[in-house]
Design a protein around this nucleic acid. Sequence first.
DNA 1: TTGTAAGCGTTATCAC
DNA 2: GTGATAACGCTTACAA
Lengths: 343, 343
Amino acid sequence: MAVNIKDVAIRAGVSPSTVSRVIANNPRISAETRERVRAIMKELNYHPNAIARSLVKQSSQALGLLIPNTIEQFFLNPFFPEVLRGITQVAQHAGYDLFLSTALHGLNDIERLEQMVRSKRVDGVILLTARVEDPLLFVLEENHIPAVLIGRPAAPSTISWVNNDNKKAAYDATTHLLKLGHKRIGFIGGSTELVVTMDRLSGYATALQDAGGAFDPRLVTSEEFLEEGGYIGMMRLLAIPERPSAIIASDDVLAFGAMRAAGELGHHIPDDLAIVGFNDIPLAKLANPPMTTMNVHIYELGQESAKMLIEQIEWPAPDPKEHLVPHTLVVRRSCGAWNPLVL
Amino acid sequence: MAVNIKDVAIRAGVSPSTVSRVIANNPRISAETRERVRAIMKELNYHPNAIARSLVKQSSQALGLLIPNTIEQFFLNPFFPEVLRGITQVAQHAGYDLFLSTALHGLNDIERLEQMVRSKRVDGVILLTARVEDPLLFVLEENHIPAVLIGRPAAPSTISWVNNDNKKAAYDATTHLLKLGHKRIGFIGGSTELVVTMDRLSGYATALQDAGGAFDPRLVTSEEFLEEGGYIGMMRLLAIPERPSAIIASDDVLAFGAMRAAGELGHHIPDDLAIVGFNDIPLAKLANPPMTTMNVHIYELGQESAKMLIEQIEWPAPDPKEHLVPHTLVVRRSCGAWNPLVL
DNA sequence: TTGTAAGCGTTATCAC
DNA sequence: GTGATAACGCTTACAA
């Protein structure tokens, strides 16, 4: 039914190997045969079977994206499409396709990873989040699977990674609020299992300490990585005796939830309550008031991770690579300090 | 290096076919050998090579997603992750993986499609938007490629599709504004090349007509499918002599841009200007004021498209299937008619 | 219940 | 320059 390399060969009066060489642009082929074979390929509407090629070449020219188990939650955060946008841009440029592992029902992350890589469907893997004790990292290391982590490994590891300096970023965000005169600053984080949460929390705590303030655990809450989580976190923080006058949310989606909670309770932002988010998702500037947030350049995170992975696939190196993407505080209105220059 | 079916067979003292049958859960295999082979597979950390299997089975257990050429723009709209969430959920449940075509640099949509399907990397394709004269549809039909379109074909076609009744939806949205007393209602649409834009425009026009109003082309604008497009569209509509008192945006992202434009010019929503969006993206309720929008159940669109495609792959049927996902107007504040029951 | 062998569509290694 | 031929790792008649 589908036309294959043999059909083309017969029709062109050559051998399959010759056709193969034409496909591969092998120089040792006469211009004449090349043209004739090309014409036949067009005529028969022939397309090389990528699966067969993958089998013999032992490579698929595809990158695997391992989405955390909580897919449903993951897609709800605008972080996803943005990082995917960056990955796509680079992958496309380099001629790699993208493979999303959703795999078999009930399989856990590790099994999905093995399915994807060991089955040779992809040449390497991008991990989209790192948990504090992530068994996936061990599997990747043990099997010498080309991989790049977006985030950083909590423990020493031989996996390459692309990340922000999250401690510094949270430090900077907190310092911004301290400079605005805030003394009691709350922190709404995502799951404490995520390295990024712990890093940002740590930066926040250090900034308070450096400013001579005390770290008050009642001002810290960690919630589900959803708008609803931010809502609940804010409710919690507003219910304690000495309320915070400012909030750092470790994700814009959390910040949105926090703003909704504050609004419903009649608190005015930024007058009663300053808020700073993280990520600078496209809609942050559309919030009311427009949200001050730490831009972590998600698109660039995606691009760098793809570049790094492709490099690793094509020129394997013994040592892991690391790359820090800079962060920029985008000052809008929700923190109470509006700087029109940065808008 | 990598352990294959032969290694397992030798180690277990059976033939490769027996191992294959164990993998496939073939019933005609003794419980004893099954267990022994399973044990060896674990011991050797064996994983079947999906590529090899695909080659012989002529199927890859993967669905292809063909993203419009304007990838960059596409990922910027929250529609994407939401539809992907629905597709993923179903694909995962049915044991299919997802393959995003980004393909080779410079290839156009058609070539990308052929690469993906003819190369047997995927068993079928989901098209994420339909243009008015979409050559992709012809290619799919001609080659009898299992495919589902999210949207509807503009011309008669044998492709299955999942869609909203966009004419009716726009009709309903417009009628809602008419009932609120608006006479001059503007329409901000996306590219006129997209079927969805034309359908919504048509529903809008019909509603005006049915209400005895005139269709004024100056009240209609079509822009890029981005926040910026909505911003520009709104500027345009506010600049005409007899300003509209209400706006229908054919996408929430456009509506967000429109709201920003209105805000910057000092118009108050909903008092000076009512706005109704389309899609009910997660952040619509967080807009200021919360946005009235037509919920088109994107998640369900994704789910249905995946279901339909998988069914088509597994039980090919001669006739195309069609499925309409219902729409629901979510009345919030931006239209000026706040109904607390629907919030 | 299990084994043998052919074949899925390519590419790579030799020859010539 | 080009052509046989043997892989790549698996599934599946057909035998036994």
